[in-house]
Amino acid sequence: MMKVLLVILQVSILYIFSFIGISIQHFFSLTIPGNIIGMLLLFVCLCFNIVPVKMIESGAQFLLSILMLFFIPATVGVMDYPELLSVHGLLLIIAILVSTMITMAVSGKTTQYFAKKTQQREADQACETSSSQSL
């Protein structure tokens, strides 16, 4: 029971950050969504210990564990577009699917490549400064 109350209380804290973020977005009429601003704000607060991590830990873990649930009502909205099943709709879907595969392959592969390069460079530097090691 205490655990449930704790989660509800902590989720309310997260709601407050969400609200602040949305207010900031509207006030400065930014194109960056308010919830992302709220997230960055909370991140900064956690880093500077303005908000101790214990204050949001349980609530955050709970919400993130059922993340997929929150998308379902939005994705059900596809039902309002039966024209997606027409020839034109299918072409559009094909374009989306192919583009998704390309994006995932290109971004994943290039980033992995550059991350490895960075790691290698660091390893090389470490080798140069310490004794030489044969690989």
Partner: peptide, 11 residues
């Protein structure tokens, strides 16, 4: 609930 969940990603 997506709002606070996106915020929770800070964790």
């Amino acid at each position: 609930l997506l709002g606070p969940t996106v915020v929770a990603l800070a964790y």
